[in-house]
Design a protein around this nucleic acid. Structure first.
Lengths: 209, 209
DNA sequence: ACCTGAACACCGTTCAAGT
DNA sequence: ACCTGAACACCGTTCAAGT
């Protein structure tokens, strides 16, 4: 297990993120990253043990952007009521998914306990504590909220919500009585509004009114 | 856009699912599937236009297994109270993730409006209607619940929840006050119990007591 | 300390051809 | 109707060598 160089890691991750953003995750090859950095593919293996670790680095990058955005939101980071702070992180997370739709889904597949990952979780913990959630329930509620937020953002950028028109869904041949009854409510949605409504519902779990 | 053969599609999907289950998604190559089916790689392209469509077929398979299990649960499928039926689907979904951990995450990345996909959604719609959710809110709540359930199951099979021990999380160098305060509650969890608690919370959104 | 070149064992997919 | 063979343009990664 050789020791890795760190000097050019940020530069390499920048290149990798740019490629994924511009041409998708399938285009993100070690060879493509190397070319963009202006180096031989093999040079990358001095900085990342393999492609998987480079992808982990990319997830770390996303989390860093998230804490950075939260930090500049309102200075030290603890201004505002708990529900405003929690909402700010949720919306920032969703924005991040739209900025980096190819890389974002990796958030759900990789543990990523980088320092910045811990920092984000800690901000959520603080908000939940302030909301009055019992200490014993805080980690569970954090996982529930973050799972939903990340899952929603992934579904959205991947088209899981919009896939299949109304006609497809209510097509004859599938026995779908509830779809028929709800036909008038199956039109394309305003996902901003839906995300807001979902968050409001979750807030009511966190602190029943 | 040539017309595809269907005769051996199920056989091919069986082979693909077996490879993914046994050796992971990275090992799922067209060549490996072909070998298992006993055919040349190129023969597969008569049944699926490309690898992506084969993966879509795999997602369809998962959904088919889900409706099959639900159907045999209690016969016609509409016995039991709404919360029991909704819970049964949620737990069956989570079981499916454990059976096919490599393929399951694709559920969140692919629209998949196959007939069986619509059937699952319709069962959820029916439960929510019976719970008293206003028609206009049913599709949103369905998306919220399914997003959470799938996201939870993916996080679990991918180790997102367990990654990083306590020590890692509370390691010095990261300023994480809430982690320090919650140190006693950050031990490894019983995910069955946590999933149950989360579902109970969601049920309270669906039908406030 | 950092990088390169050549090589190995793979990929998905196209095209033309075969029964 | 169904399948094959050869080929193209790629992959990630190892190893030995170079400055």
């Amino acid at each position: 297990m050789r020791k890795l160089k760190t000097s050019r890691q940020p530069e390499i991750l920048d290149a990798a993120l740019a490629i994924a953003d511009e041409r998708g995750l399938d285009a993100l090859s070690m060879r493509a990253v190397a070319e963009r950095v202006g180096v031989t593919p093999m040079a990358l293996y001095g900085y990342f043990r393999n492609k998987d670790e480079l992808l982990d680095g990319l997830v770390g990058r996303l989390l860093t952007k998230l804490v950075a955005e939260d930090a500049e939101r309102i200075g030290p980071g603890l201004e505002g009521a708990w529900n405003e702070r929690l909402g700010a992180i949720a919306w920032a997370t969703r924005r991040l998914a739209r900025e980096h739709p190819s890389v974002f889904p990796l958030l759900l597949s990789r543990p990523s306990v980088t320092p910045d990952g811990v920092r984000v979780v800690d901000l959520l913990y603080q908000a939940l504590i302030e909301a009055g959630v019992p200490d014993a329930d805080v980690p569970r509620i954090e996982r529930m909220v973050s799972t939903f937020v990340i899952g929603f953002a992934i579904s959205e950028v991947n088209g899981r919500f919009s896939g299949g028109s109304n006609e497809t869904r209510t097509r004859r041949g599938v026995d779908a009585p509830a779809h028929r009854r709800l036909a008038g409510h199956l039109a394309a949605r305003d996902w901003d509004a839906e995300f807001a409504a979902d968050l409001a519902d979750l807030m009511r779990i966190i602190r029943p009114v």
